[in-house]
């Protein structure tokens, strides 16, 4: 299958690359661009592990084609921190032990970031609903919910 030239905007930078059209965003990020922070758990849209942001919205990179994403802003976990400074969600996840094995963490952080962008002070139930598409087998979600609440509080200048 011949490759297609693509220009993808990932984490604020344009990347020119060549990939066959049937290569998913997950494969291109991990295998062509070396951005292995995006993980995979099923490759069928059944776990949320591979979540990235496209124009700020969480999507499943295992079911997204880069060929449809030219000109869109793609954000992976590698793009979450600012220069030398962690995103408040990353800080809160680290401090509260919300990442155990850490495998689902990138997808959850990005999903939570989209939530806080839309709804800076979500209720616990709203956080549960926003994260209902991200399976975690380690944490029982408790510390994840706590960390999103803490990050929201801090972002709002509450603590």
């Amino acid at each position: 299958m011949p490759k297609t030239l693509l220009r993808l905007s990932v984490n604020g930078e344009d990347h020119d690359l060549a990939a066959a059209p049937h290569k998913t965003l997950l494969e291109v990020l991990r295998e062509e661009m070396g951005l292995t922070g995006t993980k995979h758990g099923c490759e069928l849209g059944e776990c949320g592990t591979c979540t990235v942001l496209v124009d700020g919205r969480p999507v499943l990179s295992c079911l997204a084609l880069p060929i449809e994403l030219e000109g869109r802003a793609i954000t992976t976990v590698e793009g979450l921190a600012g220069a030398g400074r962690l995103h408040p969600l990353q800080q809160a996840f680290a401090e509260l032990g919300a990442a155990q094995c850490g495998y689902c963490t990138p997808g959850i952080l990005l999903t939570a970031r989209a939530l806080l962008a839309d709804n800076p002070r979500p209720t616990r139930q709203e956080i549960r609903e926003a994260l209902a598409g991200n399976l975690c087998r380690c944490t029982g979600y408790t510390k994840i919910l706590d960390a999103v609440e803490l990050a929201a509080l801090r972002s709002a200048g509450g603590a």
């Binding site: 849209g45 949320g48 919205r57 999507v59 079911l63 997204a64 999903t111 598409g133």
Partner: peptide, 9 residues
């Protein structure tokens, strides 16, 4: 339908 991510797509 499915999950929040899937509903975005």
């Amino acid at each position: 339908v499915s999950s929040p991510q899937l509903r975005n797509m």
